[in-house]
Design a binder for these strands. Sequence first.
DNA 1: GCGACAG
DNA 2: ATCTTGTCGC
Length: 229
Amino acid sequence: MKIRHLHSWNISYHEAIEIQKALYPKLVFSNLSRSIRHIAGADVSCSKKSNNVWAGIVVLSYPSLKKVEEKWVKGITNFPYIPGLLSFREIPIILEAVKKLESNPDLLLCDGQGIAHPRVLGLASHIGLLIEKPTIGCAKKRLVGDFSEVGQYRGDCSPLFYKSREIGAVVRTKTNVKPLFVSPGYAITIKDAVKMVLNCGGRYRIPEPIRQAHLLVNKLRKRDASHEN
DNA sequence: GCGACAG
DNA sequence: ATCTTGTCGC
């Protein structure tokens, strides 16, 4: 997969914010163009006692959700976790895993926000700009935005607003389980983002592509941890 | 100054 | 996110 180089990753916190402001005008939210046949999910696992990180990408067929490929990479990160700047901690290692892909997914689901971000540039939006493919932000918690309580049943959702703009939706992906914060990353609408997330699971809270990536990177981290004994 | 705050 | 055991509920 081709990856655009839009800026350096060796930057200060202030520069990171300036990069987000500069990238914001490049975002687009078109309807999905080509049909979706393969969906990728990405996730990162971090070590507590070192700056080691593992990134995993799992590609599933759609709508059958069968695994067609998985790639991973181990690396390090020096950028700390700062709410609003997650991209600069996780995207570099995610891109290393993306580079290993042999298949060409039509859509990428990310663990984190899309445009539901103070500068409209959450991790999913940022990575979408870099790979020039549709992306969706699937966060387990709110970063910004206001919303009304969402119904208890799978499929129920409530719009998420920030500064008078609709930026995503709070989506019940499983009945009686905490909802997910879904927002477009890049090249997709809110409506399609919600639809695709709901079509990517049902049995679990987390959409299957991300859940599979999560299981993969956690397995890798724990395998390394036991190796040290 | 205070509270909020993706992973 | 990670660390960490049992426990409550569908």
